[in-house]
Design a protein around this nucleic acid. Structure first.
Lengths: 151, 151
DNA sequence: TTACCAGTTGACGTTAACGTCAACGTCACC
DNA sequence: GGTGACGTTGACGTTAACGTCAACTGGTAA
């Protein structure tokens, strides 16, 4: 039990705990490890995830939502545990980080434009409904629910 | 030459013209058509693209950059040529449009957070370089270029 | 002991979005 | 009447990101 860098009393997670918290499957988590995005401790066979792993997973999922591939996410996550690598390595890493920021800025512009277009499309549709004397904000005709999980 | 809805004098494009303008392959364009995102006229076998198709392609590519799948993009594009469909159809369409807007807003938040994190990571890296007396803004050691195309 | 979890490692299946290749048509031109 | 350039339709290959399934390994509660 002589823990290493971890605060020794720090909270840990099993793979299913993590999978439930983040609403993904254990399979996905193992897959991320296979791709070098996570490196949990082991107790024999079983994986034990630390707070740090928790944060990493958070970053991974957010990164996916903004469109990064797992390979890119690996690069990005490595930004944090570089610590004191070789100078050349640091410089390259810095370059890729800057590159990703640029593409993200552009992506945000794309999103803003798309939102704007959807907005006009919506008003267009709403006016069509109004012409027919229908309230555009009424809910749809009683959706069939199927045991909805967490939002 | 008796054109239909088109302004008759309106500019048209061949598939390779479009592919070059947007830096994609003809294969991709045909694929989009196969998935119902484009409906070009035909002159015998050959496809003829109108201004409207041009705009659609623009929207498709932007949509892809913000993470929409081709199936989703098809839905979105259909928002524009609904015209005067069935009332029920209009309402459902309106719902999906609103849903996409919500997810886009969230995605923009994700992007902003990611940018912020990358920014701190960058300053971290830069300070490491400064500690070693290195200018963090010098370009990398003479990248090998290989006949770069358009930016 | 048996039974049942929770977890593990392969191995193969799947979907999306094209790439690649083959075989073919067709026009202008020389 | 051959030869490109440009276009077409299949059909199969490929990569990413998992899903699915099978076979196995401890622990533990009845």
């Amino acid at each position: 039990m002589k823990a290493g860098a971890e605060p020794a009393g720090s909270k840990t997670y099993s793979i299913t705990q993590l999978s439930e918290e983040f609403s993904i499957t254990p399979r996905a988590i193992r897959f991320y490890e296979d791709r070098g995005l996570l490196h949990p401790r082991r107790d024999g066979q079983t994986r034990i995830y630390s707070q740090r792993d928790w944060v990493r997973l958070l970053l991974i999922l957010r990164g996916k939502r903004v469109g990064f591939s797992l390979a890119e996410l690996r690069e990005i996550l490595d930004l944090y545990d570089l610590g004191d690598g070789q100078t050349e390595q640091i410089r390259r890493t810095l370059e890729t980080a800057r590159g990703k920021m640029v593409s993200l800025e552009r992506q945000r512009q794309d999103i803003d434009q798309t939102i704007a277009e959807l907005k006009t499309a919506c008003t267009h549709l709403e006016s069509q409904l109004l012409e027919r004397g229908i309230d555009p904000h009424l809910p749809l005709p009683v959706q069939r629910r199927r045991r909805a999980g967490a939002a």
